[in-house]
Design a protein around this nucleic acid. Structure first.
Length: 616
DNA sequence: GATCACCTACCCTCCACAAC
DNA sequence: GTTGTGGAGGGTAGGTGATC
């Protein structure tokens, strides 16, 4: 039995030497295999070339074999007559034109009319500067904002999925990943009414192919006969929130096995098991057709934990996480996942929300306590505990990528990739507080009611969106609000154009404020020198007056000193008065009064501070 | 009643991108 | 290169309830 190190090494070597075109096909084939493994606990392995699905092997000019032959011919031509044939390597390096790069994309694989001459010459020097997923060639925020997943509200059907932007991802397997992702994006995002302009197969045909191939593989294994049963039970997003989602959502989950949606793709990126022996609670074989997405994710997270313990070596019976770094996010914009920042980690918000604790709205906790008779201990303590957990989680999330909370962005995107956003979003049965219920029933939007209402919705929606919902998701939630609660179909602010705009703005502000708190960590750990806005205002109303005992006359110097001293006081928190102000007042006195003899200044924090130079 | 903390709403600025 | 647009963050006034 090979250990993980050898497997990884061999796999890396294999991937590094495979032809990019072959690699894209291999990854798609691997997609199916990993999906089978995730769902059924084992792969339907095939060790013969003929088991490669016909559509993956392609035909005519897209047939990999013919490509290889063609490529070999080109190579031989290049070798035999270096002057007559254009060196492909130079083509790649010198002419990274969009059209030619596009040919390397998987979209062109469906086109089946690609130019074989567009491949790099050498298998040993894989093309690195192609743009398999050009949207990722941006800074991360840009990635989040402008990636196809993020901007689904602005589908660009006519836009080729391979642009001329250069992506410097130096990992070939990552390259293949993005190529596959691009392929899936193409399938999922193209307008069905428009079809695939640049391909000869329709989206429906593509999806049917996915469905057929997976079903064929499954039937071949004799595991699953009823696709609908297996799919619904395997990836049921209903489990994500313990709520009954609309039938439309169920239908979406049904598609999971019909096409390798983001669920499988993302899970497969992160999860890999070694060994076949059982591990209590972590046995891959436990992933059955009855497994829920949470169970799968739990196992996935277990693998993360294993990997974090440093036990990267293979141990029989243990779950091993491949540490290939394929999915790490880097500044090149190659999106990926960090085991530390997965939203569904042990302190995940979903678990928190699953706990039957009413929505924590601190200001109106009386209402909460009334509705929480089951756990009647200390309502405030429970609330504080709940919120503390929530913010502990957020803090983890914030720190998941160093000092910035960029991790939250990646989090949001990865979460949005894993969990399908319900459409429409179910808002009926959320645990609203009493005032929120009152607002819902009466249609009278009060501040306390709105706060409870928003907090409840935020706590639910964040499970699907993370802290950075897409604009479309906000709109969907706003729509859900006005449709679910007709009495709330009103503008919360007269300045808004419509109720949708109004709720959308409110949601945006809510998210922004939550992120702000996350960024500042103000809930349970205020900075030592934190000065609340109220204190600042109080300071303004209680300006200190600085006087110098030795200079009682109203000279311009004295006035200048007092003004600057007051400004100085306003800029500093109270607990810094004794040191910082003392030091700066020394400087100030020296500068404004021209008196360098003042060494002992008695600083008092009363509104009027007497400064007695020289200890007089 | 004063003080304080929390929260929302609003304003402003910055940034990235697209269009011109 | 300039301009327009949208999203995000920061600042903060004001409302509200909790606490002393």
């Amino acid at each position: 039995m090979l250990d993980l190190g050898f497997v990884k090494k061999d796999f890396t070597s294999l991937i590094g030497n495979v032809h990019p075109w072959m690699l894209s096909h291999f990854v798609m084939w691997l997609d199916i295999k990993v999906a089978e493994y995730k769902v059924y606990g084992h792969m339907v392995l095939d060790d013969t070339a003929n088991d490669t699905p016909q559509w993956l092997r392609g035909n005519k000019s897209s047939d990999v074999t013919s490509i290889e032959k063609s490529h070999e011919n080109e190579e031989s031509m290049s070798h035999s007559d270096g002057s007559s044939g254009r060196p492909i390597q130079s083509f790649v390096e010198d002419s990274p034109s969009p059209s030619k790069q596009t040919r390397l994309s998987t979209s062109s694989s469906l086109n089946q009319t690609h130019d074989q001459g567009s491949f790099p010459q050498s298998h040993q020097t894989p093309q690195r500067q192609i743009s398999p997923y050009s949207h990722t060639h941006q800074s991360l925020p840009t990635l989040v904002k402008h990636s196809p997943m993020y901007r689904k509200e602005k589908p660009t059907a006519s836009e080729p999925h391979s642009e001329n932007k250069m992506l410097s991802c130096d990992d070939e397997s990552r390259l293949a990943h993005y190529r596959t992702k691009q392929f899936m994006d193409m399938i999922e995002e193209r307008d069905f009414t428009q079809g695939l302009r640049n391909t000869k197969v329709s989206q429906i045909q593509l999806q049917e192919r996915w469905s057929h191939e997976i079903e064929k593989s499954v039937n071949k294994s004799g595991v699953i006969k009823d696709r609908s049963l297996s799919s619904q039970s395997s990836f049921d997003p209903v489990q994500a929130s313990k709520q009954d989602l609309p039938s439309e959502t169920l239908s979406r989950s049904t598609i999971v096995l019909n096409e390798p949606t983001e669920h499988i793709k993302e899970l497969q990126k992160r999860l890999s098991y070694a060994g076949s022996q059982e591990v209590p609670g972590k046995n891959p074989g436990n992933i059955s057709s009855e497994s829920t997405i949470q169970e799968i994710i739990k196992i996935e997270l277990s693998s993360d934990e294993e990997s974090q313990t440093g036990n990267s070596e293979s141990h029989q019976g243990e779950i091993i996480s491949l540490d290939t770094g394929q999915t790490e996010t880097n500044l090149d914009g190659c999106m990926g996942f960090d085991p530390n920042d997965h939203l569904l980690q042990e302190t995940n918000l979903k678990e928190l929300a699953d706990v039957n604790i009413p929505v924590p709205v601190t200001l109106y906790s009386n209402d909460i306590r009334l509705t929480n008779q089951i756990n009647a201990g200390s309502g405030m303590e429970e609330e504080a505990s709940w919120k503390s957990k929530k913010w502990e989680y957020f803090e983890k999330l914030r720190k998941s990528r160093g000092s910035s909370y960029m991790g939250a962005r990646v989090h949001s995107q990865s979460l949005q990739t894993v969990l399908p956003f319900p459409d429409p979003f179910p808002l009926e049965n959320l645990p609203y507080g009493a005032r929120a219920k009152e607002m819902i029933n009466t249609g009278i939007v009060s501040r306390p009611g709105k706060m409870q209402f928003l907090d409840t919705i935020f706590n639910e929606v964040v499970k699907y969106t993370g802290l950075y919902p897409t604009p479309q998701q906000k709109v969907e939630v706003a729509k859900a609000i006005v449709t679910t609660f007709p009495k709330l179909d009103q503008k919360t602010n007269p300045g808004q154009a419509s109720s949708l705009d109004s709720w959308g703005t409110v949601l945006s502000d809510k998210y922004r404020n939550e992120r702000r708190l996350l960024n500042h960590g103000q809930f349970y750990r205020k900075p030592i020198n934190y000065v609340s806005p109220w204190k600042k205002r109080q300071k303004i109303s209680q300006r200190h007056t600085y006087t110098l005992a030795r200079h009682s006359e109203e000279t311009p110097e004295i006035q200048e000193f007092q003004e600057e001293a007051q400004n100085l006081n306003l800029e500093l928190p109270d607990d810094e008065l004794s040191n910082a102000i003392s030091e700066q007042l020394h400087t100030l006195v020296s500068r404004t009064m021209g008196d360098n003899s003042v060494m002992d200044i008695d600083i008092k924090t009363e509104p009027v501070i007497m400064i007695e130079p020289g200890g007089q």
